[in-house]
Amino acid sequence: MKKTTTTWGRAVKLGLLLAVGATSAAHAQADLLGQLEQDTKKNAPSQLVDATFKSTRLINGHTVQTPGEGTLVFLISHRIGPFNSGSYEFFGLDQARIRIALEYAVTDRFEVGVGRSSLNKVVDGFLKYKALQQSTGTHAMPVSVTLFSSAAITTLRYDDGRDHTLPLRTAYTYQALLARKFSSNLSLQLMPTLIHRNLVMNEGENNDIYALGGGGRYKLSKRFSLNAEYYYVLSKYTADHYTNAVALGVDIETGGHIFQLNLTNSPGMIEKQFIGETSNKVFDGGIYFGFNINRNFTVKQRQRKI
């Protein structure tokens, strides 16, 4: 009696031991990666959403994007047209406008830039600060917000007898750029804008122009995207006497270059010009063909984290 109990007991013990050992081993083999991923997921920090747009420009206007720290961007933009200027002007080629600019990213969030436009011989300088960046994770941020401000000085010689002092030649632009990358392909942006001009040329014209811009990009492939941009002018005088700037374009990325080809009704490439001074109507053929060429140089390499 005693003997059988012990043998039976031993068998149970052995069986249980084997069963437990086997299940835990099987569990370990099948679930090692799963457990690892679950653990890392649990501890996942919030992750910034990068590359909402390819360039610092959507088409005419800015995007929320600032280049990475230590990056110098050389930007050449042309606007050729309008097409309705006829064969005498070679359909706009004779009147090609150019803007040459340099932008430098002081930090990952802050960049400064200067540019020179041939249209009205305007020199502009801007500051751009990425205030909020879209992120995922525990404390997710739904949008990116970049603050933009610029000053533009017209260096044109006037012969109207007035004294065009430096303040009278200056106009300022303030923008809050709000964007969200909905997917790796689709990003949309809103651009509330205020432009202040110290001098206006016409009776009854406002010094301030309020406008709301909207735009976005859709990536058709990894290196090719379709862009659109529209600025709706809210200030009455400007809305009555000028047209809203509209633009359609593509981004083509090739390593260190981004080529942006576009069609727009605006000859100007800075905010005060394309938002405040566009007078061409798209449906009358007042369209300019244009391009921006972005070339990125890494001036200062990032310090390696160890």
Binding site: A28, L32, L36, E69, N296, T298
Partner: peptide, 19 residues
């Protein structure tokens, strides 16, 4: 058991050039 598992977040690779 001699089992090994790795999981590497691709987004965390840091380059000297941000581009």
């Amino acid at each position: 058991t001699g089992q090994v598992a790795f999981s590497v977040p691709i987004h965390e690779f840091q380059f000297k050039r941000t581009l």
